[in-house]
Design a protein around this nucleic acid. Structure first.
Lengths: 354, 354
DNA sequence: TTGTAAGCGTTATCAA
DNA sequence: TTGATAACGCTTACAA
């Protein structure tokens, strides 16, 4: 293949004796090109192994046929599914995908957005990214369209694909209430996430309506990582009156909570119920068996990319919002609380493997 | 920001009254440009919000400052870490990264490679991809340099970053042998993976040297997915004389084995020992606690990208190989086999959570 | 040290 | 229906 220099459209023109523009038009499928010239061109192109340079085309058409995807970390199983969904439709639309890991760091995000703009991406998908500060907003003019996933800013009419942050959580809280829990620890999620905020509000309204203990100490400001789950449990379980159940900010976060609980000699669920949020693959494993609120991540990625492609094509005004349903998947990490929650001496956890 | 049209280098030239080329040279940091003109240019560029178009630059320099990464599926936790490692160094080198999911499908891989070439990527990283068929080889000339990860072709002197497929596995087999296992099931991994083949050979040589049962039925041709683990266990556990231990092709694969064993009423490890390969985050969780052979994936991604960048810069001949160490992490999914392996009526598995 | 001009490989405009 | 030509925005000889 790339032994010799790549054939250009000029080579095809010379090979056929036609003009550059005719070759271009023939290949672009313009209707007014004769069938015979078209086949002539196609055959020559085939023979020479000609493929149009996406770079030259991009320069001329001011369209790169590529989109940028910003995400905290693809290596976090909680979020990779979104990316996969986006790629599915990008590929179908013959768009390539620039992957950008921001680690939730605003500066890093801005750096990536800047280079995406330099590359004239046709659009961007921001998965749980910063979208409010003026530094970030400077890149969120209408020009390259963008779609937000999971994190939005109500001051702007952006395109948004999110989850119903009320229903699933509300089912989860009712579930815990029905089991008899009264003190629920809550891991809040990233500070400036709209979804995390909506969940917090849902939580707080249920604290009131279901009569849970209203104690600010029960709310911990961790993010979606495993480490944050460790930190949260570390803190919450040391409270003078620890919670009997913890609602984590994500499944990975829940795993951190469970690990820490186990380290402290507490068994899940008999000593502590834990509810996650995501329904990642491992949540369903028998040995994990995590009760969790399911998010339709891949579908959401598909929806976001589909919408983005539409905006790119039609240049219509943003402001659409698509909310995906959430539902509680009850598994084995929740059960009624142990009798006397106070000062209970921890029981040794029963470990399945080893 | 993108309210008005982007400023071009021409705008900067006009604003300063200098020539385009001078502006370009000043911004490119050419040493012969006067300090005062340089600052003049820089200030004007700053003021106008000028940023060079990566597309135009790419066309002219025939270099896109972007690399392609091909992977089966980013959403599979077994492989996402490689990508993260690659992105770490790409970003440091101001390169962007095109992500391509191939699902292990050769046609899909070829489609992606073709478009990467159309985009004139500076290089490619192929993570466990096809690299032998002539259809694929057609894209693997020297021209855009590439680095293979985990899967190679010995007929070609390619750059390769891989794992030591002997040491870790060999430790694992010795470990099983020391525990008293004699019938080991083995999930082979993808058919045309060199690493999978090396592991199979290692396995077979140990079958001989350690005196394991040499039974072709014990070798199952599954890939790295969870589903393949399910299929493998489904098959292996139904053998007239089932194995007392299974060596999976990956951690996700091992999880499939464990799930299926549990469904069949078998407890891991007391009824069946399972060894994985990867050491993904969840393997260390107390409730999973998987004995596994650790792969240094993120480091390998970093190494591959670093090597690729060097090739891009120096255009030196490929053929380097970097083999990363592997080691056995003994956790709780392995133990001595149950007494009479034959016709043993399965014991109910002890499930930790619910 | 700076300026002029050519060219990277396309597509779009307009004549023929 | 096809062909000549001008951009697209940059870098790089080469001339001044």
């Amino acid at each position: 293949m790339s032994e010799r220099k790549r054939a250009t459209i000029r080579d095809v023109a010379e090979a056929t004796g036609l003009a550059l523009s005719t070759v271009s038009n023939a290949l672009a499928g313009k209707h007014y090109v004769t069938d015979e010239t078209r086949t002539l061109v196609q055959q020559a192109a085939e023979r020479l192994g000609y493929r149009a340079s996406a770079v030259a085309r991009g320069l001329r058409m001011r369209r790169s046929f590529a989109i940028g995807v910003l995400i905290a970390d693809v290596a976090n199983p909680s979020s990779a599914d979104f990316v996969r969904g986006v790629e599915d439709v990008a590929m179908a639309e013959k768009c390539s995908l620039f992957l950008c890991n921001t680690d939730g760091d605003e500066e890093r995000q801005i750096w990536h957005m800047r280079t995406l703009l330099d590359r004239q991406v046709d659009g961007m998908v921001l998965i749980s990214q910063h979208c409010s500060s003026s530094a970030v907003r400077a890149f969120l003019g209408g020009d390259p369209p963008f779609v937000l996933i999971q994190r939005r800013n109500f001051d702007h009419r952006d395109d948004y694909v999110g989850s119903d942050n009320v229903t699933g959580l509300s089912q989860a809280l009712r579930h815990l209430h029905d089991l008899g829990h009264q003190r629920i620890g809550f891991v809040r999620g990233p500070a400036d996430s709209s979804s995390a905020l909506e969940r917090l509000q849902t939580f707080q309204s249920h604290v009131a309506s279901l009569g849970f203990h209203d104690d600010p100490d029960l709310i911990f400001p961790g993010d979606y990582t495993f480490a944050a789950g460790v930190a949260a449990a570390d803190r919450l379980l040391r409270l003078r009156r620890p919670p009997t159940a913890i609602f984590a900010s994500s499944d990975m976060n829940a795993m951190g909570v469970i690990e820490t609980a186990a380290t402290a000699g507490l068994n899940v669920p008999s000593d502590l119920s834990v509810v996650g949020l995501d329904d990642i693959a491992l949540a369903a494993f028998r040995s994990i068996n995590l009760t969790t609120v399911r998010l339709r991540k891949r579908e959401m990625g598909v929806a976001a990319a589909t919408l983005l492609m539409q905006r790119i094509r039609e240049r219509t005004e943003p402001g659409s919002e698509q909310i995906f349903p959430t539902d509680l998947i009850v598994r084995g990490s929740t059960c009624p609380p142990a009798r006397p929650a106070r000062g209970a001496r921890p029981r040794r956890s029963e470990v399945t493997l080893g």
